Simulated scan of single mutants.
Amino acid sequence: MSEYQRIETEAELRDLLGFPGKLVQHKVIGVIDEHCRRFIAQSPILMLATSDHEGHVDVSPRGDSPGFVQILDERRLVIPERPGNRRMDSLINLLSNPRAGMIFMIPGLEETLRVNGRAAIVRDEQLLQQMEAYGRTPLVGIMVEVEECYTHCAKAFKRSSLWNPESWPAKDHLPDIPKMIADHVKLPGISAEQVAASLNDSYTNRLY
């Protein structure tokens, strides 16, 4: 990146892009109020951002039926950890750096809800049983002590037309994910067809 002109200070950045207005400056709250509670209850998916102690960043989705995130009180929420691929990037990051950021989304709504705070991995049996789905209780959950809650404007969703089906590409033009994975792993004997079968088995039999 050294050959490109770079901005090195906040002063340079502010001179170029300016400052937020009063509405933006005052919209951040430190609790899960009634509005945030309603938003989270209707959200079937969130993006979870974490980083390790060296600052290596990871963002991954968490999704389930609306209401899958449990709100304990105005300061705490819990995200159930459903079965994944066992990389556990988010969980391992939280062991060394408890900071977490989330973006909650509701299909069709272009504004989103951002929540930031301190997170911990919990395994309280009574708590986790409340997040049982299809007869299976998560082994752990991510509890977040909320420090910031605020809405994010709809500009990115309007520019991308994300929720407009007419803007979606035809299915036969979508990336071939099994082939992508097979080409990336480059393991002998692993074909796109085998990856597709493995993914289908995981999606069919190991969602919960």
Rank of each mutant, 00 (worst) to 15 (best):
R86L: 14
R86H: 14
M88I: 07
M88P: 00
M88S: 10
D89A: 11
S90H: 05
S90N: 13
L91Y: 00
L91H: 05
I92M: 08
L95W: 10
P98N: 11
R99L: 11
R99F: 07
G101A: 13
G101Y: 04
M102L: 15
I103Q: 02
F104H: 03
G108K: 08
G108F: 11
L109P: 05
T112V: 09
L113M: 13
L113N: 03
G117A: 06
G117R: 00
R118T: 05
A119S: 10
A119L: 03
A120C: 07
D124R: 00
Q126M: 11
L128H: 02
Q130W: 10
E132S: 15
Y134S: 07
Y134N: 10
G135N: 02
T137V: 15
L139P: 01
I142P: 00
V144Y: 00
E145A: 03
V146L: 01
E148K: 03
C149K: 02
C149I: 03
Y150T: 04
H152I: 06
C153Q: 06
A154G: 11
A156C: 14
K158R: 14
S161T: 12
S161D: 13
L162D: 03
W163I: 00
P165E: 13
S167Q: 08
P169I: 08
P169E: 11
A170G: 14
K171Y: 05
K171D: 09
D172A: 04
H173T: 15
H173V: 12
H173K: 12
L174C: 14
D176I: 09
D176L: 00
I177L: 14
I177Y: 10
M180R: 13
M180C: 07
M180S: 14
M180N: 12
I181W: 00
A182H: 05
D183Q: 14
